[in-house]
Design a protein around this nucleic acid. Structure first.
Length: 379
DNA sequence: ATGTCTGAAGTTTTCAGA
């Protein structure tokens, strides 16, 4: 069975973390790796060092900020495009697309959008809209595609962040950001981490402030989305948390999927994946829309419920292996020695038990919020 | 409100961006 491991990693400065990058590649051996936030001009990209350990590369840098790259073990990615169509501002290097081993790989670094509200947030939404337009064309053309990168969106309050309270005014949690995310999923893309892990809390980013890593106070903002033709090939997904625990680490950890490229994307499997993605997203979308009118608490609850359904549906329908097995195996294989703190994930916890816990926690949150209005930041 | 990190400008400190 041929397994293809595809990873995405916001490296936060490729020059500052070149050694960390090489160590991760040598240890985890991804077949394809998408990098974001190179923060380096094109001429400073460490092409020779990567080739020395067997990786061909394509990169799109800029001075100081942004910058994306696609690495391929044993080959050079064939460039298909750099930048999204109809981008009025070509100065920001945030998108690179290439063919590798018969797959179309899109590496993206979606604008952060802070401070919210403001022009940077508007730029984020406009960029997201251009991404959706282009993504729908990839689906229409039936290109087997994986979209990966730092989307700068926390999809739900319940499963994708340690505690949303202090992030309410952050661009990563705004309803408009989430609406854009679910609209993209609604085209037929499968959120691979959710499809494999169901209700489990998974984080990919821990900011440098307030000892967030030590407390496992993370966010899930790095995502890998599979086109309908690839979704039935999904076998596993995870986060290389050990990388975040290294001295001087990036604030993100590499996030990955494994596809079984020998599996036949049968018509049945494909139809299943498409319908599960569609129904999951229509529920999520409807609840996000409803939540906007009804207020944030309602939005958060409804959206969480929809996403739990989405995750569960995807697990049973698109992953050939039982989700429980895949999930437990992945956690034991990829979770670093537990950071101190109550939020540290527990390996081997049954998915069902977890789901109940999440629902209970959600109920408790709702009850609290009903009696106590959300505290805003002090003026 | 705060917190921490990178890269830059341009000199040992400050700033923006995240």
């Amino acid at each position: 069975m041929a397994r293809l491991k595809i990873a995405t990693f916001n490296i936060n400065g490729i020059r500052a973390r070149q050694d960390a990058l090489l160590e991760w590649l040598e240890r985890e051996q991804p077949d394809i790796a998408c990098l974001q936030e190179l923060k380096a001009p094109d001429e400073a990209f460490p092409q020779a060092e990567l080739e020395r350990i067997g990786y061909g590369a394509l990169w799109h840098g800029q001075k100081s900020w942004n910058g994306v790259a696609i690495l391929a073990r044993g080959s050079k990615p064939e460039e298909q495009r750099r930048g999204l169509p109809n981008d009025p501002d070509e100065s920001q290097s945030r998108y690179l697309e290439a063919d590798v081993q018969g797959l179309r790989v899109a590496c993206l670094y979606l604008p952060n959008g802070n401070p919210w509200p403001g022009p940077k947030f508007d730029y984020k939404l406009a960029w997201f809209a251009r991404l959706r337009t282009h993504a729908s064309k990839l689906l229409k053309d039936d290109v087997p595609t994986i979209l990966c990168g730092d989307f700068n969106v926390v999809p739900t309050d319940e499963l994708d962040i340690y505690n949303p309270a202090s992030w309410r005014k952050d661009a990563l949690l705004q309803p408009e950001s989430r609406e854009a995310w679910f609209a993209l999923l609604g085209q037929g893309w499968t959120d691979a981490i959710r499809a494999v892990h169901g209700d489990a809390r998974i984080y990919t980013f821990w900011d440098y402030f307030r000892k967030h890593w030590d407390r496992d106070a993370g966010l899930r903002i790095d995502h890998l989305l599979l086109s309908p033709s690839l979704a039935p090939l999904l076998r596993d997904a995870g986060v290389d948390r050990w990388v975040r625990g290294q001295p001087g680490a990036s604030d993100h950890a590499p996030t990955w999927v494994e596809l079984d490229t020998t599996a036949k994307a049968t018509r049945v499997g494909r139809a299943r994946a498409e319908s599960s993605a569609r129904s999951a997203t229509s529920i999520a979308r409807a609840s996000v829309a409803k939540g906007r009118g009804a207020g944030k608490t309602a939005s958060a609850g409804a959206e969480g419920a929809a996403t739990r359904k989405a995750g569960a549906a995807s697990v049973t329908k698109t992953v050939a292996r039982p989700a429980k097995t895949a999930s437990a195996r992945t956690r034991s294989a990829t979770v670093a020695p537990a950071p101190t703190g109550a939020n540290a994930p527990k390996g081997g916890t049954k998915l069902a038990t977890k789901a109940v816990k999440v629902r209970k926690a959600l109920k408790a949150t709702k009850a609290t919020k009903a009696t106590k209005p959300t505290k805003g930041a002090k003026a």
